[in-house]
Amino acid sequence: MLRWLPGRGTRRVSRDIWRNGDVLSAAVLVALGVYIATEAGNWVYYSDDGPGPAFFPVWYGIAMVVLSLVLLVTTVVRLRQGGEQAAAEAPDWEGIRRALITWAAFAVCALLMKWLGFMIAFAMLAFFIITYVFRQPPVMAGVAAVATALGFYLVFPLALSVALPTGVFGF
């Protein structure tokens, strides 16, 4: 009588489906496609002079929605057919964590460059990556970070006359 209610295994598959990278990316791309097509809808599609600025985006926006939906549906069907085994394709979270921490440090370095300048922000990034991501001794990391930052200064502003962002300290 209650067969339509999902069991524990089915619930787990459903939960894992929404954690699946293909499903999530397809959902994001559906939203992006809808945004592109609706935003382009505010511009001229066709005029006496020919196709307007909306012409091309409307079509690739629609194509993006259709293809993302195909990806979404086929992935969900595949996961449901494959059941728990397909849903349990576990990614290497430790590797992803390392990569995302590196990216976050890179983003913070880019942000800090406005105030600290390239040299200090980059030295801090290098020190963090060498010590935290690659687990090297802090002294060695400090020497390597300062040496590479100085190397950048010698190569780019001095040798090649390429400007680097400067901060409140003037370098």
Binding site: M113, T148, P165
Partner: peptide
């Protein structure tokens, strides 16, 4: 060692992006 190489690549990337226009917006 990759722990030296990777920060250098990231540094060159920052210089390259900033060098395009001299704007931190491009770095972002």
């Amino acid at each position: 060692p990759v722990h030296i190489l990777f920060p250098i690549i990231l540094g060159i990337s920052l210089v390259g992006a900033y060098g395009v226009s001299g704007r931190l917006f491009d770095v972002a």
